[in-house]
Measured scan of single mutants.
Amino acid sequence: MTYKAILNGKTLKGETTTEAVDAATAEKVFKQYANDNGVDGEWTYDDATKTFTVTE
């Protein structure tokens, strides 16, 4: 399944996708990606669109 992350960081804005077996696995991948890029904020998840959003 393909999951998407939308990054609304102070220094990084954009989107990325990952293939994962479930939302929990995708969330770990996206949170690591955000952390590696200095983005730390509030996370939300929309199951209907399989989209995570982080906003700083």
Score class of each variant (00 low, 15 high):
15 E>K: 06
7 L>M: 10
32 Q>A: 09
30 F>D: 01
39 V>T: 03
13 K>R: 11
34 A>F: 11
33 Y>D: 02
5 A>C: 15
20 A>Q: 05
1 M>K: 13
19 E>D: 11
24 A>L: 11
27 E>R: 08
13 K>E: 06
52 F>C: 00
56 E>M: 07
31 K>Y: 06
34 A>T: 05
34 A>N: 01
47 D>I: 09
20 A>N: 03
10 K>I: 14
27 E>F: 15
20 A>G: 03
3 Y>G: 04
4 K>L: 07
10 K>A: 12
43 W>L: 03
1 M>S: 13
32 Q>D: 08
19 E>W: 15
38 G>V: 03
38 G>Q: 07
21 V>C: 13
12 L>H: 14
46 D>M: 04
54 V>L: 13
2 T>K: 13
17 T>N: 06
3 Y>T: 05
38 G>Y: 05
35 N>V: 13
47 D>L: 07
39 V>W: 15
26 A>N: 00
9 G>Q: 04
26 A>I: 01
11 T>I: 11
44 T>N: 08
31 K>G: 03
29 V>K: 08
28 K>D: 06
47 D>S: 12
20 A>V: 04
20 A>E: 03
6 I>E: 04
29 V>S: 05
43 W>H: 00
48 A>T: 11
50 K>I: 01
45 Y>E: 01
38 G>K: 07
45 Y>F: 06
20 A>P: 01
35 N>S: 14
12 L>F: 15
39 V>K: 01
53 T>G: 02
39 V>I: 14
37 N>A: 12
55 T>A: 05
40 D>R: 13
26 A>T: 00
6 I>N: 05
31 K>P: 01
2 T>E: 10
21 V>K: 13
28 K>G: 08
10 K>L: 14
40 D>S: 12
42 E>F: 12
21 V>F: 12
17 T>D: 05
36 D>Y: 07
43 W>E: 00
46 D>H: 05
19 E>I: 15
27 E>Y: 15
49 T>P: 00
47 D>E: 14
46 D>R: 02
10 K>T: 12
36 D>E: 13
8 N>I: 14
41 G>Q: 02
29 V>E: 07
16 T>H: 13
43 W>D: 00
56 E>F: 08
22 D>V: 02
18 T>R: 04
9 G>E: 02
6 I>W: 04
45 Y>A: 00
9 G>M: 10
4 K>W: 10
49 T>K: 07
12 L>M: 13
49 T>N: 08
1 M>G: 12
34 A>S: 04
34 A>W: 06
24 A>N: 08
15 E>I: 13
39 V>C: 04
20 A>S: 07
10 K>F: 11
42 E>W: 12
56 E>Y: 10
12 L>Y: 15
55 T>F: 07
7 L>F: 15
35 N>C: 14
46 D>K: 03
51 T>M: 03
21 V>E: 11
40 D>G: 10
40 D>F: 15
52 F>G: 01
44 T>Q: 09
53 T>V: 09
44 T>R: 08
2 T>Q: 11
30 F>W: 01
24 A>K: 11
55 T>Q: 07
47 D>R: 07
5 A>W: 11
37 N>T: 06
9 G>V: 09
35 N>R: 15
22 D>A: 03
1 M>P: 12
53 T>M: 09
47 D>M: 09
7 L>H: 03
10 K>E: 07
47 D>Q: 10
16 T>L: 15
52 F>T: 01
47 D>Y: 08
16 T>A: 12
34 A>L: 07
49 T>L: 07
30 F>Q: 00
5 A>I: 15
33 Y>T: 03
23 A>W: 13
42 E>Q: 12
17 T>H: 10
29 V>H: 12
55 T>K: 06
32 Q>S: 10
41 G>C: 03
52 F>R: 00
3 Y>C: 06
23 A>Y: 12
45 Y>H: 00
42 E>T: 12
45 Y>K: 00
23 A>M: 11
34 A>Q: 01
1 M>Y: 15
10 K>H: 12
43 W>C: 01
9 G>L: 13
47 D>W: 09
38 G>A: 06
52 F>N: 01
56 E>L: 06
43 W>G: 00
54 V>A: 03
2 T>P: 06
32 Q>V: 08
43 W>M: 03
26 A>W: 01
53 T>L: 08
52 F>M: 02
5 A>D: 04
51 T>I: 06
3 Y>R: 04
33 Y>W: 15
8 N>S: 08
3 Y>H: 05
55 T>G: 06
32 Q>K: 13
29 V>Q: 07
22 D>S: 07
44 T>E: 11
37 N>G: 05
34 A>I: 05
46 D>V: 05
48 A>F: 09
55 T>L: 07
53 T>S: 06
30 F>S: 00
42 E>R: 09
4 K>C: 08
29 V>R: 09
18 T>P: 01
51 T>Y: 02
52 F>I: 02
28 K>L: 12
23 A>F: 12
41 G>D: 02
47 D>V: 10
3 Y>W: 05
25 T>G: 08
19 E>R: 13
26 A>Q: 00
51 T>A: 03
10 K>S: 09
42 E>M: 12
14 G>T: 14
25 T>A: 14
48 A>N: 11
9 G>F: 14
27 E>H: 13
56 E>S: 07
20 A>R: 02
26 A>E: 00
8 N>D: 10
29 V>Y: 15
34 A>D: 00
33 Y>R: 04
47 D>P: 14
22 D>R: 02
5 A>H: 03
28 K>V: 09
20 A>D: 02
51 T>G: 00
26 A>H: 01
40 D>A: 11
36 D>T: 08
3 Y>D: 05
27 E>C: 14
25 T>W: 07
7 L>R: 00
11 T>Y: 14
42 E>V: 13
42 E>I: 14
24 A>R: 10
50 K>A: 06
28 K>I: 11
30 F>G: 00
29 V>N: 06
19 E>G: 05
2 T>Y: 11
7 L>S: 01
18 T>I: 14
24 A>F: 10
51 T>S: 04
27 E>P: 00
10 K>V: 13
16 T>F: 15
